[in-house]
Design a protein around this nucleic acid. Structure first.
Lengths: 218, 218
DNA sequence: TGTATCGTGTTATATGATAAACAAATATCA
DNA sequence: TGATATTTGTTTATCATATAACACGATACA
């Protein structure tokens, strides 16, 4: 009877927030104090009205003929996403994609700090990737409890994904961000977000083979 | 006057197609001949009615009390996405993310073949990543014309992204799949798809900090 | 052979997201 | 100081997507 998905409003808006944030930070660096919805719209390649709607969600209001205060917007978005303070995370599966995420500059810029990595490969275990130690997967539960880790980034092969997630859940993880396309189930209280690279490729392919140029870029 | 975004119908459906495809292939390997929308719905963690709506797009119709023919669905989805035959692509920016994509097994499974990589790092140039030779970026236009490359995968830092894309366009590229969050513009005739890792993290963070567990997983 | 059942296809409704239209507010300039 | 232009906020309309309701068709079984 309970719905499979709990509704979250404004999901498309939330997806756009990081992009706003990056533009705003660039403006901040340049010393700009105000920004108009028209400018943001141009940068985002969307309509200005949509920008204003989106910003509504942050609770910040602009002033007519002036625009929005850059600093306020940055603070509001960061607060909304919880990106103000650092969030300790771990990486499970230190393969190439995992390593890439570890080194991803933007991730660190948004309060994500990976404090431990786990893998089964004896060669990797004990080594350091981008300053993060790789532990054996067997120590996952133990370290999960010792360190204060709320979020896990999972980049393991599909066939072991469910097992890894189960261990994470058992270790008390609160959120899982997974880059594996496999049918994973988690308990209701665990936040679960799958990233599917192929879905983006699909819309690109569809355009390439049938529809033709330039559509929306969600 | 022309709209910034040309509407494409059924975009969410298209994003789900690769996931269907993977499930169907697994069934095919197991020798299953038919599949019901209920089964697919369960695997995808969506409603069965949505599955049927999605499959409608492929043109395949099921038979009552039996379901859909697995092989037909696979063929139809592949045809829809143009994933039946191999699509030659190149990778620009052979950093960690680029290397990860190169080695990504699933990409190869779906008809994407990377035939050349480009980078500016002298150390990487001339070497081979996963069997793909890394060329200097300066040879981009030249090789683009010699090889038959329709799609480019771009994984370069934001500050050089526009320049790289410009070169690709000049070299006659038809589609660009870019993993950099920067304000890129392309001519109308070029298909352009940006992949934003941060957007997924944003919805996860939003749930983690304010809303709570499990929502839809687009 | 006829009936019950189950899964699909179709039609209709509801929700949510984007765009448009308009009103209110503030800086600029005469 | 007052008029104007510009940018925001609000309301309304349109469009896209997801869900629901129902009818149809095929199989299974008596």
């Amino acid at each position: 009877m309970s719905p499979k998905t709990l509704k979250i409003d404004k999901l498309p808006t939330i997806r756009r927030l990081p992009a706003y944030l990056q533009i705003l930070r660039a403006l901040s660096v340049k010393g700009e104090e105000f920004v108009s919805s028209a400018y943001l719209a141009d940068q985002m390649q969307i309509e200005a009205i949509l920008v204003r709607k989106d910003l509504e969600l942050t609770g910040i209001s602009g002033t007519p003929r002036v625009g929005f205060r850059v600093q306020d917007l940055i603070a509001a978005i960061e607060k909304f996403l919880g990106w103000g303070r650092v969030l300790d995370t771990c990486l499970v599966g230190a393969g190439q994609l995992g390593a890439a995420l570890l080194g991803h500059r933007e991730l660190n810029q948004f309060g994500i700090r990976i404090v431990a990595a786990f893998d089964t490969d004896p060669v990797k275990i004990g080594s350091s990737l981008h300053g993060v130690t790789v532990f054996p997967l067997s120590r996952l539960s133990e370290l999960l409890k010792r360190l204060t880790i709320l979020l896990a980034i999972v980049c393991v092969p599909p066939d072991v994904a469910q097992m890894v997630v189960d261990q994470l859940v058992e270790g008390g993880i609160q959120a899982v961000w997974i880059f594996t396309s496999a049918n994973i189930t988690v308990p209701e209280h665990v936040i679960f977000q799958r990233e599917d690279l192929l879905s983006g490729l699909a819309v690109l392919s569809a355009r390439l083979t049938r529809i033709g140029p330039n559509g929306s870029s969600t």
